[in-house]
Design a protein around this nucleic acid. Sequence first.
DNA 1: GCTATGCTATGACGTAAGGTAAGGGTCAAG
DNA 2: CTTGACCCTTACCTTACGTCATAGCATAGC
Lengths: 256, 256
Amino acid sequence: MVQYSVKQVAKLAGVSVRTLHLYDQVELLKPAERTQAGYRLYGEAELLRLQQILFYKEMDIPLQQIGIILDDPYFDLVQALNKHKKALKARRNQIATMLNTIDKTINHLKYKDMLNYEELYDGFSKEEAAAIRKQAIEKWPKEVDHAEKALIKIGKEGFKALKQEQDDINQALISLMNEAPESPSVQFEITRHYQNIRRFWGTQNDGNPQAAAYAGLGELYVADNSYTRVNGEPNATFALFMSKAMKHFAETALVN
Amino acid sequence: MVQYSVKQVAKLAGVSVRTLHLYDQVELLKPAERTQAGYRLYGEAELLRLQQILFYKEMDIPLQQIGIILDDPYFDLVQALNKHKKALKARRNQIATMLNTIDKTINHLKYKDMLNYEELYDGFSKEEAAAIRKQAIEKWPKEVDHAEKALIKIGKEGFKALKQEQDDINQALISLMNEAPESPSVQFEITRHYQNIRRFWGTQNDGNPQAAAYAGLGELYVADNSYTRVNGEPNATFALFMSKAMKHFAETALVN
DNA sequence: GCTATGCTATGACGTAAGGTAAGGGTCAAG
DNA sequence: CTTGACCCTTACCTTACGTCATAGCATAGC
């Protein structure tokens, strides 16, 4: 009968001694016996059980559950695994969403100060050009070319009109800042705001993806309020107001 | 100047009161002031900051980091986000691996006792048929049909030969159980084992994916040792031995 | 027998982001 | 003046260990 000490087991299985102490304490893996001095001694059977524990641990199954799996012969393992699988999938989707948000934010920050496109957007202020370009990049991170061609196609006059209307809408919204973001008057202007934004975003699809994107843009305004300016100055309160109004709009008007 | 109590802020932002207490404690979000009685009072600015906190929290960024992002104007946010993105991607891939393992295990468990295919595998024992079918399903979960057609195509004689060799290899390995799993003699038999298994797995691709799959099969043997039988009885020690030998083989011989 | 070195034991604290009480003030309405 | 809703702080619980701190045991060399 071969016997192994904690350190030997730890090395064989690639875990720490502390882990073995813990597993002993929570009754997940007890040593086969103890020496007079209290040293833990493990046999082959325990090594096997440890392998099984690690097998399930690889799937991120909590230790408690592993104990049940290994000790309760009537446990419905398939059902438990399916449930766990569902949880993992949810987590995976959540991470995918976070990655999207991060990408958007990075693009946002990266191109925020990119103000050197005079030759392309000749005739507009640097700030205007950068704003347009940024919004394009946020929508089509890898298709900036396409976006810029589209903007050029609009032409200077078309773009100026677009910009004029955006300013117009902004002024209207600023004057409504004391109203509730959900109030009809605000939501009316928000509708115009949305329509105008959509021209930059193209018209590929409508409904839910657009709703989420629009609400997300509102959140972005809050995270970086240099976007929402009042009389040329970044204004945090206006940013918050806009994000609330946009969120409300997305959740009501844009629900398909 | 509008003031909000904890409960009001909590409701507005969709967080718990406890969370506000915590953020106060860790200096992430302090109330604008306190009443005589010690009640927390928040203003619009704090509401905005809370929105920003939640914005970053959505990306799973730790609170400590969020504090730095919001308070240190020289913090390189883009770099930090890129780093975080990398971590998230790693986590995503890890979850993908776990989902694969779970799928394999579920299939393994599900079809383990499916022994009613006499008509298809006529002439072989039920156990043999089930074993074949299970391995097929593990490799092609959604292409069992195809797999079974392939097996039929091999024909009874071919299959019997395959089975014979498998038994042969098993006997050889059992007799080598006292050797080290990494020893040349064991690894030689493992090579045969691998070749034979590969016939069930097809020959689509070789190299690393195969290596991981083979090592994974070894782990599966440990998790359910009814696979590795000695004289018809499940044998845990043999399972452990096999998994070690297969892992070693995968890590040395199968490295491209 | 003594000691240096290495292994082992238990106990306890820390981690992240809160949940969940316990025990006790505060405030406005009736 | 009481009631109910709200607020406060303190503190323990969660996961799966890492990291000491302190102290007992084992073995090899002298």
